[in-house]
Amino acid sequence: MPSATDNIYLPKPAVLDRVVDEIHEVKTFYWHFEDAEEQRKFRNFRPGQFAQVSLFGTGEFPASLPPSPTEAETFFTIRTVGSCTAALHALKPGEKFAVRGPYGNGFPMEDYFGKNLVFVAGGIGLIPLRSCIIYALAHRQNFKSIQIFLGARTPRDLMYRDNLRDWEQSAGVECHLTVDRAAEGWTGNVGVVGSLFKKPGVQVPIDNTVAFVCGPPIMFRFVIKDLLAMGFPERSIVSTLERYMKCGVGKCGHCCIGVAYVCVDGPVFTYEQIKKLGEDI
């Protein structure tokens, strides 16, 4: 939490270290704060929190934090959609930008100790969930079963390939992939992400389980429907919502959904809370 004298709108200079291509229009940007003390403070973030990224002259945008606090490096995974993200994509290693944060509530991972975890992600919805998955695997003994269900449009749209390979091969986690449209060489499942729940041999635990759902609105709606039909209580389904934010600290008003400021009350909400916000998500 910032002290009373902190300037909540002041971003701190950061250096871009390297850029890795993920999928079409999506890249991962490894970076660090110029000031080592800032870097140390920042690394206490929780999975599910976000940061405000400044590209001076273009503007500032909110970005999920895909790394887990258990990892050494800080990075963003960003799709080019608007002017700020395009400006970040145009940045070269060694060039400077600025970051402030972390903000938001994040996933209360400690509250989930002793539970089964089910991760359901569609497309770039994996970005915020990656943090939770890596965190959960780093604290593997604190959780019961861990299942990952991932959907992408085509095999070429699967991101974090190295992680996927690890998760598919790891004994401590069950990882299922599906694509909407197969391509040559794809031997995996074809269909929406919900179709994975009914695959032979897949047993999704309901009791004492938290389901993390993140993806495009249409995928979100159908997965929620599936999970509720399977008997998941609304409060056991968690997600992270997105809105454009100008401040990230509950002042500018842009991210309000119904009664909630996504930036300070969220971005993590249970489905039970999402239903009560009083506005479309």
Partner: peptide
């Protein structure tokens, strides 16, 4: 109350 209240205080 809005700008100075809650967790974040608006310095400006």
């Amino acid at each position: 109350r809005f700008y100075l209240g809650r967790d974040f205080r608006d310095t400006y």
